[in-house]
Design a protein around this nucleic acid. Structure first.
Lengths: 239, 239
DNA sequence: AAAAAATTAAGTATTATTACGTAATTTATA
DNA sequence: TATAAATTACGTAATAATACTTAATTTTTT
């Protein structure tokens, strides 16, 4: 069987060395090239058409997310495995959105590294155990089903209506009333009324406090972002 | 001549592997132990009394700065070499204040690594060439830094001033201009000016987009949060 | 000491948000 | 089918934010 070919993209030599040291004596995995930024990584992928591109999120020139987004134009068959120091939910979701095949934490074990590379090279998705549990728990929270070691959060605490959730979601995206009105084909006054009611229900007095409250209350955040998490978690649960 | 004994403290296995791979075949340097947090590092220093402790700044349980501060109580002769992903000026200064023998960036070359270890083990100070220039003129290096080191810029690509970070932090907390002005004892117009400049620098046109950007960019979020840590430490040091 | 950058803050004008009250439709549900 | 709930939207005001420019200090860097 042919070995799995891998290109490493990380701006820190130490990290590249570390991964190489991890994979070095593994039959079946071959690090064929390295890159220290996104642009270089894509160029090298075009040249070598590797099975897997292991890419760090933070890189100069072009970050990991952008790199993954553009990867198909350089090497259609290459699977992207995003590597990160942090289990930041935002990065995970973004990675999935741009089409990454997997997401791995930098402090994963040797075994998990190899498993992840094997998995994605076979066309399957791989997410660190921790990460999938985070996302799946979020998904299940939305569905109001209690999960193992998770506090039961009542997301109906604020009883926002459908329209209100929709508007709150747009607000959370940083869209102003005028834009929301245009997007929904409604009067600005209507949006203002909804906004006023939302703020009253959530007990805040400005859009900034609203944002803060959303960030601080996972249940609320999930409610608003349910469309995204639903999408993400569906993929994960189908694995 | 006896080899220089080293203990590595970093919560990421990969980084430890990378450093080990770098130093492995170097006669004269011996990695005798590893630790994944500050407390563990200190305990192992007490046991082995190494010549040098290579310590990461960000670690669970006890961070690198605290670890270095407490090191003399565990092993008086051990020199601390602080290792960091970032050239955060505050961290560098803090490291010096707590008595670190050196400060090294994680993307330093093999040669620089060895040189740094040699230097601090001889009782001298060692700071990355980059770092000294950063300390001397921060803003100029950001603009003229050679490509190979541009990863460093990544974290401060927006180049917000101290005051701007402070105000952005308060904005992020959901505080309005009037409140910020009151809290800082400044005119509302001043805060408005800062806010305008911040938004210009970050390329957004409303406070909501600002919040969104902060949430979507963990690097930026960390920068704002690190301001809090700085405030706290300044107060503590002044006590 | 000169130059650059940061902090402060006012001027002026426009636009957006907040804070209600009121009320006509439309839709869901008991 | 009543009746509640949700969606729509206007009126009126006050307050806040945005978009600049200019410019005096103060601090930092060269």
């Amino acid at each position: 069987m042919n070995p799995i070919t891998v290109i490493l993209a990380d701006d820190h030599q130490i990290v590249r060395n570390g991964i190489k040291a991890l994979l070095e004596n593994e039959g079946g995995i071959q690090v064929i090239d390295e890159a220290s930024n996104g642009k270089e990584a894509l160029e090298k992928c075009r040249q070598s058409q590797p099975d897997v591109l292991i890419v760090d999120i933070r890189m100069p020139e072009m970050n990991g997310i952008e790199t993954v987004k553009n990867l198909p134009d350089f090497s259609a068959s290459t699977k992207a495995l995003v590597l990160s120091m942090h289990d930041d939910e935002e990065y995970i979701i973004q990675s999935i959105e741009v089409g990454a095949a997997g997401y791995l934490l930098k402090d994963s074990s040797k075994e998990e590294f190899i498993k992840a590379i094997d998995t994605v090279s076979e066309g399957e998705k791989y997410f660190s155990g921790d990460i999938s549990s985070i996302l799946v728990n979020n998904y299940l929270t939305i569905k109001n089903r209690p999960v193992q070691n998770q506090a039961i959060v009542d997301d109906e605490q604020y009883h926002l209506t459908k329209r209100e959730k929709e508007i709150l979601h747009l607000l959370y995206e940083g869209v102003n009333n005028k834009e929301i009105a245009k997007q929904l084909g409604k009067s600005i006054r209507t949006i203002e009324t909804h906004r006023f009611n939302i703020m009253k229900k959530l007990g805040v007095s400005s859009a900034l406090e609203l944002m803060k409250k959303i960030e601080r209350e996972p249940a609320l955040k999930n409610e608003i972002r349910s469309f995204l998490l639903l999408l993400v978690s569906t993929v994960l649960l189908a694995m």
